[in-house]
Simulated scan of single mutants.
Amino acid sequence: MRYAIYFTPPSGDALTLAAASWLGRSVYSGEPVEHPAVRGLGIHEIAFHTALPRRYGFHATLKAPFHLNHDCSEAALLRELMRFAGTLEPFEIPRLEVGRLGDFYGLTPATSCPALDYLAAAVVQEFDGYRAPLTEAEIERRNPDGLSASQFANLHRWGHPYVMDEFRFHMTLTGPLLARDFGRVEAALGAHFAPLLEEPVEVANLALFVEREPGAPFQVHSLHPMGRVAARKIA
């Protein structure tokens, strides 16, 4: 089993529901969801272009998937995640937008959000002791020869190349695309998500995801609210 610490909105959030439809699967129930009818892009094309992110579900990576260290347990991870989340204050991403990152699309912050960078770095450091060291095969799957010096150092130190200064918050919505498909896919994403991207997105929880066996889809195991319990009760 592998674990990951991600951000994802609550199950009933409009953005969560729209993303589940686009990707074709609910990351909470694990059940298939019908793709939307979007002008200019057939349902079969959406299914094809979302095959890779469908397995991981709608999320932004904070701590990339990891096996538990041999001397750690799921119960201990859960206790620490609950404790740690309680030390953090919720905040808002002012606005997300559809953006292209290399050859794939996702939702990215429209403006810089230092709170996101701080949160991601804090999660990576706080939970690194729970992560089993990468095997040689896992390192090779990261294509180390194609990484920059900083990314390579991150891979060996933190188990993932895109952390710390290399971190870029994104919520993946497609797999790799051919250049000829960029325009149609971007237009379809804009039509589907634009009505939901005018309001700020609240970051008020950390989500523990699980992959129960190799190749299985990732699913939400539990949400861990940010902020002190007393403050949440008063609110």
Rank of each mutant, 00 (worst) to 15 (best):
P133Y: 07
L134P: 10
T135N: 08
T135A: 04
T135C: 07
E136P: 06
E136F: 03
A137E: 15
E138I: 08
E140M: 13
R141L: 12
R141M: 14
N143H: 14
P144Q: 08
P144M: 02
D145T: 12
D145L: 10
G146F: 03
G146D: 03
L147C: 06
S148E: 04
S148N: 09
S148W: 06
S150Q: 06
F152S: 12
F152W: 07
F152Q: 14
H156V: 02
R157F: 00
R157G: 00
W158R: 11
G159P: 09
H160R: 05
Y162I: 00
Y162A: 05
V163H: 06
M164E: 11
M164D: 00
F167I: 04
R168C: 04
F169M: 05
F169G: 11
H170F: 13
H170P: 12
M171S: 10
M171N: 10
T172N: 06
L173V: 09
T174Q: 03
G175H: 05
G175N: 05
G175Y: 05
P176T: 01
L177D: 10
L178T: 13
L178H: 13
L178R: 15
A179K: 15
A179E: 15
R180C: 03
R180N: 09
R180V: 13
D181E: 14
F182H: 14
G183T: 10
R184W: 00
R184K: 15
E186T: 07
E186D: 06
A188W: 10
L189F: 02
A191E: 14
F193Q: 13
A194Q: 11
P195R: 04
P195G: 03
P195D: 01
L197N: 03
L197K: 08
E199N: 12
E199R: 15
V201Y: 00
E202A: 12
A204G: 14
A204D: 15
N205I: 01
L206M: 13
V210W: 07
R212N: 13
R212L: 12
E213Q: 12
P214T: 09
G215A: 05
G215T: 11
A216F: 04
